[in-house]
Nucleic acid binder design. Structure first.
Length: 655
DNA sequence: ATGATTTTACTTTTT
DNA sequence: GTAAAATCAT
């Protein structure tokens, strides 16, 4: 058997067609459970088997997890096809690719080589300062939304100078944007948006540099194309305009990140951009029962302007979708726990079950019921590892070592652990600008003897840490920081419980484990470590292999599948969420989210709603979600559990 | 500068 | 209802 034959083995006709396409542009619309990753990985392996050099290939994904999985599967495919190739294609997230370009060409756009990356919380802190310092009304320019508007301008590739404000609000926004951006460069940092938009601007201004990348990446493949934003789209198109070999795969019906600037038009208008593009539809579903698939399709049919597709499956009909009306969120949760108990006795493990909800806040009632029943569970999302306070503190120290002008990091650690340096003093130091360690030292030569001493000791501490950078590994530096700052003692004195301090220390140890990878990296170790933690936010070791049910938002569930899926809180106002009910576009996105949630289920799907629900402390009557009405009755089995069980330990359920 | 108290706000979030 | 942020005493 030839190499290519081996790679094509086991693919269905459509998959094979996608994998073996000739050069040129192609769009593969891949329904849920239709083998999207399979098509993508086999395509890459096929190209290599057809003697394309691996280094000529660029594959772009949205998550590190996806990039890792593709890498893994491609090398496995190549190995089992008996192909010995040296090197693998360039595979990574949009942001990782952008970062690579910036590291090489930082000089050309004046950000140098040693910039660091601001994460979302840091951006938040910075924008607050900018809003305050410009005398903007905090009510009209709340940090989150303001940052959102700036991010949007960046994805639209509008630079501060090119932004033409209309009206007073935008006048101020323009000022804030300009100021925000100039502070970024003053600190020598970039935000996430810059990782994509700066390379695009670079390529537009420097065709010579673009040319080099076009030559280098002759085959470009993009995963989850429906989620690309305008700048990502432009980046891909600029690169692909070289050889014209562009392979995009995705599903317009699963576009659920428009609130994060994903632009569904990128996939819908693919043919306009690439008139000769081949379009292939993967419509066979290997995941769900006929019933589940039919329910999902019935819902999504209420949207307009999707790629027409007709999903089908050879899987059995399966059971009806069970629709449960609960009295309130607690009875809803208890009902699910009872159901989990039954399933557990049957042929399912808890790890086969996922409980999906629209908002994180909904997890609590569910958790309480699970804890009460002594049933193990794990929650995906919520507070992530790199967002934890202790981790951020240590990282801020490290970033300050790498980049002494990073004032966001400086502000974070200046008084952590508490050393009597308040906001007033910090802003004095910051206003001196430049190297903040140096600025601290200079600020320490004035003022009262008392504050002098404090500042000098902070300056000494930071200087000592920075010197440690030259002869210590990242791991050594973290240990050094913890030791020299008295961080351990600080954690213990915090008004937290003891176990909490222990848990926080455990997180610091976990950070050491991550850092170990860079032990042998030499002088670049720190920079590379900081890049990894900036770009890999979900470092939560997916140690969820134990027998536990999984709880997560519907967004977090995208790309996953479970034999048994529960969707809770199917009520108007919650899902679709009240904030989205009026704009048709957002309504359609909610519906796609429902489609995504439903199609996670392989064998059994349970959906539920509550007649009464506590939201922010007050009680609200709930109506079943319109999405339930959109599922044909023939596919549903409705039930209303006996409410007596609900009341027995629930005496204060009255008005 | 810091600890206590009140006010406020609150969808989703691959990087 | 909660948790973070703003405000108020010390």
């Amino acid at each position: 058997m030839s190499h290519t034959e081996s790679i094509l083995e086991g693919l269905n006709e459509k998959q094979r067609e996608a994998v073996t396409l000739d050069s040129g542009a192609a769009l593969v619309i891949s329904g849920p459970g239709s083998g999207k990753t399979r098509a993508l990985t086999h395509r890459i392996a096929y190209l290599i088997a057809s003697s394309v050099r691996p280094s000529d290939i660029l594959a772009v994904t949205f998550t590190n997890k996806a990039a890792g999985e593709i890498k893994e599967r491609v090398s496995h495919l190549l190995r089992s096809a008996g192909l010995a190739v040296k090197g693998l294609p360039t595979m990574g997230t949009f942001h990782a690719i952008g970062l690579r370009v910036l590291r090489v060409h930082g000089q050309e756009i004046g950000i140098g080589k040693n910039f660091s990356i601001l994460d979302s919380a840091d951006q938040q802190a910075l924008i607050k300062r900018v809003v305050a310092d410009n005398g903007a009304d905090i009510q009209r320019f709340k940090p989150g939304p303001t940052l959102g508007k700036i991010a949007k301008l960046k994805t639209e590739l509008v630079l501060p100078d090119a932004f033409v404000p209309k009206g007073g609000y935008e006048e101020m926004l323009a000022r804030l944007y300009r100021d925000y951006q100039s502070r970024l460069s003053a600190m020598n940092v970039v935000d996430f948006g810059d990782l994509i938009s700066l390379p695009v601007h670079l390529f537009r201004n420097r065709p010579d540099i673009l040319r080099g990348y076009q030559e280098r990446w002759q085959h470009i493949l993009v995963d989850e194309y429906q989620d690309t934003s305008h700048d990502q789209y432009t980046l891909v198109n600029l690169l692909a305009k070289g050889r014209g070999n562009l392979f995009c795969i995705g599903d317009d019906a699963q576009s659920i990140y428009q609130f994060r600037q994903a632009d569904i038009r990128n996939i819908l208008n693919f043919q306009r951009d690439w008139p000769d593009a081949k379009i292939i539809l993967l419509e066979q579903n290997y995941r769900s029962t006929k019933t589940i698939l039919a329910a999902a399709q019935a819902v999504i049919a209420h949207n307009t302007g999707q790629f027409p597709k007709d999903l089908w499956t050879e899987n059995p009909d399966g059971d009806a979708v069970v629709v449960t009306e609960a009295f309130n969120e607690r009875t809803e949760a208890r009902d699910i726990v009872r159901r989990l108990e039954e399933l557990k006795g049957d042929r399912y493990a808890l790890s086969d079950c996922a409980i999906l909800y629209r908002t994180h806040a909904q997890s609590r009632a569910m958790e309480e019921a699970l804890v009460q029943a002594g049933m193990p569970y794990r929650i995906v999302g919520g507070l992530r590892f790199y967002e934890r306070r202790e981790v951020k503190d240590i990282l801020a120290y490290l970033r300050l070592m790498q980049n002494p002008t990073d004032l966001v990091s400086f502000e974070r650690v200046a008084n952590v652990p508490k050393r009597g340096i308040g906001p007033a003093t910090v802003s004095t130091i910051v206003s001196l600008g430049g190297d903040l360690i140096e600025a601290t030292r200079r600020a320490g030569s004035g003022g009262t003897p008392r504050s002098q001493a404090k500042l000098q000791s902070l300056a000494d501490l930071l200087r000592g840490l920075r010197e440690a950078r030259t002869d210590k590994s990242v791991r050594g530096m973290i240990a050094h920081i913890v030791a020299r700052t008295g961080y351990r003692e600080y954690l213990k004195t915090m008004k937290d419980t003891m176990e909490n301090a222990e848990e926080r220390l455990e997180n610091v140890r976990e950070l050491l484990t991550v850092a170990r990878k860079y032990d042998d990296a030499g002088p670049d170790g720190l920079q590379r470590f900081l890049e990894e933690v900036a770009l890999v936010q979900d470092a939560d070791t997916l140690a969820g292999t134990e027998r536990a049910a999984t709880l997560m938002t519907m967004h977090a569930a995208k790309g996953l599948e479970y034999p048994v899926v529960f969707i809770i809180g199917m009520e108007e106002g919650l899902f679709p969420h009240s904030r989205t009910t009026y704009a048709p576009q957002e309504m359609e996105e909610e519906r796609r989210l429902c489609y995504v949630a439903v199609t996670r289920a392989k064998e059994h799907l349970y959906v539920s709603y509550a007649k009464w629900r506590n939201i922010y402390g007050s009680r609200h009557a709930g109506l079943p979600s319109r999405f339930l009405d959109e599922m044909p009755d023939a596919l549903l089995a409705r039930r209303v559990p006996d409410e007596e069980a609900a009341f027995e330990d629930d005496t204060i359920t009255y008005e």
